[in-house]
Design a protein around this nucleic acid. Sequence first.
DNA 1: CCAAAAGTGTTGTTTATACACCCATGT
DNA 2: ACATGGGTGTATAAACAACACTTTTGG
Lengths: 224, 224
Amino acid sequence: MTASHCYAYPHPAVTTDVVVFTIREERLQLLLIRRRNPPYRGRWALPGGFVGIDEDLEECAKRELAEETGIGDLFLEQLYTFGRPDRDPRERVISVAYFGLAPCSRLRLKAASDASAAAWFPLDRLPELAFDHHEIIQLAHRRLVAKLHYSTIAFQFMEPEFTLSELQAVYEILRGEPLDRRNFRKWVLSLDQIEETGELRRNGNHRPARTYRVRHPQRVAIIR
Amino acid sequence: MTASHCYAYPHPAVTTDVVVFTIREERLQLLLIRRRNPPYRGRWALPGGFVGIDEDLEECAKRELAEETGIGDLFLEQLYTFGRPDRDPRERVISVAYFGLAPCSRLRLKAASDASAAAWFPLDRLPELAFDHHEIIQLAHRRLVAKLHYSTIAFQFMEPEFTLSELQAVYEILRGEPLDRRNFRKWVLSLDQIEETGELRRNGNHRPARTYRVRHPQRVAIIR
DNA sequence: CCAAAAGTGTTGTTTATACACCCATGT
DNA sequence: ACATGGGTGTATAAACAACACTTTTGG
């Protein structure tokens, strides 16, 4: 491979990295890939890679995610740009980090070209990570928790149809504390962001639950 | 100038741009420079410039701000990274935008090397701008207004000592509506983020006002 | 008929809003 | 003495938190 792209001044490389959260097995989990190439070969890392010269940033994040993990559509938003000069041992690399959320059912993992494996990890059981990815994850987690309180971001974890108990469980996992069922229901219904499907879900030896759907699944509303 | 920095893959250029707000003449104003070089020569634009190959992003934002406007220390936080492939006509340029706040007294403008002029503009009287800087400003303004409601960010506009009426005036300008004096004082004092200096300010033919200072001027606290 | 989760209202507490008069100074 | 902005409390409304029993199903 010959060095063929030349500039009057030195240019940094630019990458995107994506922190994808889901709720799985009653825990907040996130998606990591195992690196197939140096540096940090064999280590777990966030999915991501170099931005194409004519590629939009979010497009790059989605492409890398698809290539490395097989994941198609999901909620994505820009998180922060990490640019410490020494954060990559190869050369100066500035990384635009994104954070994404999806119900785990939507995310069918298949290890693909760039990564030898992709897997979910509970947030409190992370392996050693490449680069400054721990720092990126920490920021993403703080953002997620903050947004819980003033937006409907948690709805992004839900399947197309869900019960109020399932939604409550998601909030309880994210907030790390039990919530009162009656208050939760009053609150979440007062947001006017979910609606009954009219269907019931029979799900064990007890009363069936009404199911709901998010009114505007693409929008994260700002509330309060 | 010879093209001497070569890479195996094309690299984008990376810049920082800074949106600096202040309160001046009873209005929210922001800092622009007039471009001395193409493209958009002669147009007004946000201060900013190319990131040095070993330079941290925030450091770059501060340096460019100092070079172009003479402004030294101020509150700065990362805003968003703009990377549309066609946002700069010269080459692919990704810009990490920052937003900054300061009392206008701290900002002594002196047009310097990179810019033929620097000036304050009321937010509702902006000239035509270079690049996508209108979009950047719009996002910065939204962020400022949003942060008013859940942080002490507005304190960054204040001089080291200020009266409660001055602080209230800042909130009224930012929110665009008058506030009740008693409720405002109760609220702002209950935050426990400002303290009396013990001094009075005599300021006209009326009762002198107590002055206050911010307890942790470097920190923007999250409230509520 | 028993176990298990679904569903439903009321009360007390805290927080936010609305509102009017006296105070200290300079002229 | 008067004009000007500085300073203060109370009453009402709205939001939030605490709390227990009945319903429907499967086994």
